[in-house]
Design a protein around this nucleic acid. Structure first.
Length: 194
DNA sequence: CAATAGATCATCT
DNA sequence: GATGATCTATTGC
């Protein structure tokens, strides 16, 4: 049985957690996939991060204990999944941008009739939450226990990690905080930066 | 293939 | 009242 990642894994700098999550397995309900793309979001210095403006009703989970989910609605239509990093009281989280679908692909397809290929199912933050059935109902849930969790892969494959600037933001657009598994076809397509 | 438009709403100013 | 950690369809080379 693959092991669920514990609190200590998340209670580190967001950058390390983002890098460490590559190759791990995200599961929710009967669906699961390998994490192939992440982005780190920091605290007050990172103007691209929601947490940079301090604690509000929305951002308070980012300041809370690590190992919890932060799910929010973007552009009025897409939900994005983050995992809270850093020790309790310190802001930081990791946006999960893309998965390589492994289990429950039939269920994913039924939630995403528009997807043409398996690689498309979880390619992009909005796409993966819809495919996995993750919504704001999961905001604040503990990811170290329960049906939304991240596990150790059955066997550790050798992966090559690439670091690039983050996608789709206007502040701090040149900070190298995006991590991806080089060459993986499920990584989200690059889009025109604004 | 690249660029653009439109959808649509919670959150913050 | 403006903005945004997006996606898809459509248009134009």
């Amino acid at each position: 049985m693959p092991e669920i990642l514990g609190r200590a894994f998340y209670g580190r700098p967001a950058k390390e957690v983002a890098r460490g999550l590559l190759g791990k397995i995200l599961v929710h309900g009967g669906c699961g996939g390998r994490i192939v793309e992440t982005e780190a979001y920091l605290g007050s210095a990172d103007r691209a991060a929601h947490a940079s403006r301090g604690v509000t009703e929305r951002t308070r989970v980012i300041f809370g204990p690590p190992g919890h989910a932060y799910v929010y609605l973007i552009y009025g239509m897409h939900e994005c999944l983050n995992l809270v990093a850093e020790p309790d009281g310190s802001p930081g989280c990791v946006l999960i941008r893309a998965l390589e679908p492994l289990w429950g692909t039939g269920e994913m397809r039924s939630r995403r009739p528009g997807a043409r290929t398996v690689e498309d199912l979880c390619s992009g933050p909005g796409n993966l939450t819809r495919a996995m059935g993750i919504t704001r109902a999961q905001n604040g849930v503990d990811v170290t226990q329960g049906n939304l969790a991240v596990k150790e892969p059955p066997r550790n494959l050798e992966i090559e990690i690439e670091v690039t600037p983050r996608i789709g933001i206007r502040h701090c657009a040149d900070w190298p905080l995006r991590f991806l598994i080089k060459g993986n076809p499920c990584v989200s397509p690059s889009r025109p930066a604004r």
